[in-house]
């Protein structure tokens, strides 16, 4: 089951420790400008901090525009830039709808998130729980759950279990309407 990186922006504190971890992992240096994840910090209006990194698109625009075929999907669906085939034309940087491919003035080729080979460092250092590395099928589950939990027509009953007050919520069909 392929795992993917995902973000809960409202949890991000803007500390950018993820950027440090990324640059250490990939370039053996401390340099947020060489990180494949970047925290965009916007204020005072709107107020949001959002880490931007590659979502490993199923139909990657970056690969589509690459004239050299240097951008390929590996067996886990991770999009990789093969530096030896890349000429540094920067088309992919402009083509990415999320701005998740990066350039640095000291490097000849662009770089992007490779999920650290399946164990992303950024997630490990995120102390606010804004970054997650989860199987693809989990995506959207939070929203599905909260959608269900906030269903308006739930019934509630209170009961006591071993002296402790509890509550049961349930959806009840009620008087069956004849709607056919």
């Amino acid at each position: 089951m392929p795992k993917r990186l995902t973000v809960t922006p409202e949890r991000c504190s803007g500390c950018k420790t993820c950027e440090i971890a990324c640059s250490i992992k990939h370039f053996k240096v401390i340099n947020p400008k060489k990180s494949a994840i970047r925290v965009m910090v916007l204020y005072p209006n709107p107020i949001i901090r959002m880490p931007i990194m590659c979502g490993q698109c199923k139909k990657p625009k970056c690969a589509e525009v690459c004239r050299k075929g240097a951008i390929k999907k590996d067996e886990n669906g991770v999009i990789l830039i093969h530096a030896e085939e890349c000429v540094g034309c920067q088309m992919c940087v402009k083509a990415c709808p999320f701005g998740a491919i990066y350039l640095h003035e000291s490097l000849d080729t662009p770089f992007k998130c490779d999920l650290c080979g399946g164990d992303p460092e950024c997630v490990k250092v995120c102390a606010n729980g804004a970054l997650h590395f989860v199987p693809e099928h989990i995506f959207g589950q939070d929203h599905r759950m909260s959608n269900v939990l906030s269903y308006m027509n739930m019934k509630e009953m209170e009961y006591t279990l071993q002296g402790e007050k509890k509550q049961l919520r349930y959806a009840e069909i009620g008087d069956k309407k004849n709607d056919d």
């Binding site: 409202e10 949890r11 504190s13 803007g14 500390c15 420790t17 107020i47 102390a127 606010n128």
Partner: peptide, 12 residues
């Protein structure tokens, strides 16, 4: 509405 941290600090 949110935590805020200085650079590279987990304590936010």
């Amino acid at each position: 509405i949110n935590d805020s941290a200085c650079f590279a600090c987990p304590m936010s």
